[in-house]
Design a protein around this nucleic acid. Structure first.
Length: 276
DNA sequence: TTAAATTCCTGTAAGC
DNA sequence: TGCTTACAGGAATTTA
């Protein structure tokens, strides 16, 4: 499933191909995929706009448009969303929910089997005010985000650490895979109430998060389930995951069978011996 | 305000 | 083989 490294990979790959392109037409085939504004207005507003910049924030891809009104096309891939740029006329896959034709003959395609993803159009302020875009927490790979920042956010909360790592308002871009992996690297139990963590433990967690996410970006993300990059290719990080998807198998550090529990509604894997 | 539970959605795999 | 059922999870929404 696409988390920060996967979304970063897609955004970085698309950027050189999309910046400077103009939208010729837009067809929304599955209306509920567009969450703001209504699909007809979405298509009308988008048509004729030029993409001036492409950025990522958390798990969101932001296409900044010309026109002087700060309009942004926002894409969230949810669980199974795919955002690809292909030559127009290529055979269409199933579950294709939106198609955007560009002025160079390429086509942006939004495909999403489970339809947990979404497309938004508006200024960032408008989307946040309309509660279509959350007030995201800091970027975990931003050098300005320090261990002290993370500690300040965690030590006032009593929820299990895992639940807070998944909270996009606390820190942006972490999902189930990298939450479990960062806890393992930091040797911290994901079910510990956040306010019980020492500064030292939060320091390890902060370092683990940064290292892990940078490594995963380097490896073009984890292709578990059906994540693919903008060209339909798989990432490599899934081969390096140490706990995610390995419940019951031996811990790669100590050999003990990895525990599987349910936390914050998510399958959570950790080592009862290595993580305290 | 916070935390936990529920909902959406479909492909896959396990069980009978 | 074919059917039913459980499971996967990001985040909005609801409930406590």
């Amino acid at each position: 499933m696409p988390e920060l490294p996967e979304v970063e990979t897609v955004a970085a790959d698309l950027r050189p191909h999309l910046v400077g392109r103009t939208v010729r037409s837009c067809e929304v085939r599955f209306p509920t995929i567009v969450r703001h504004p209504d699909p007809d207005r979405f298509a009308a507003l988008l048509t004729g706009r030029r993409i001036e910049a492409l950025t990522r924030r958390g798990k969101y891809i932001l296409h900044h448009l010309d026109g002087g009104d700060d309009l942004v096309l926002v894409v969230h891939l949810g669980m199974t969303g795919q955002w690809r740029c292909v030559p127009a006329g290529l055979p269409e896959p199933d579950h294709l929910h939106a198609v955007i034709d560009l002025d160079d003959g390429t086509q942006l395609r939004y495909r999403d089997v489970r339809r947990f993803g979404r497309l938004l159009l508006g200024s960032e302020e408008e989307l946040v005010a309309a509660r279509k875009l959350p007030r995201l927490g800091p970027e975990p790979i931003d050098p300005a985000f320090t261990a002290a920042d993370l500690y300040r956010r965690l030590h006032v909360r009593r929820a299990p650490l895992k639940a807070l790592l998944l909270d996009q308002m606390l820190v942006a871009g972490v999902g189930n895979i990298y939450a479990d992996e960062s806890c393992f690297r930091a040797r911290v139990r994901p079910d510990r109430p956040a306010n019980e963590l020492s500064r030292r433990a939060v320091g390890r967690l902060h370092a683990a998060l940064g290292e892990l996410l940078r490594e995963a970006i380097e490896n073009r993300g984890s292709s578990v389930d059906d994540y693919r990059d903008a060209w339909g290719e798989m990432g490599r990080e899934q081969h390096l995951l140490r706990v995610y998807g390995r419940g019951g198998q031996p811990c790669l550090r100590c050999g003990r069978a990895l525990a599987v529990v349910r936390l914050a509604g998510r399958t959570t894997v950790f080592c009862r011996r290595c993580q305290r």
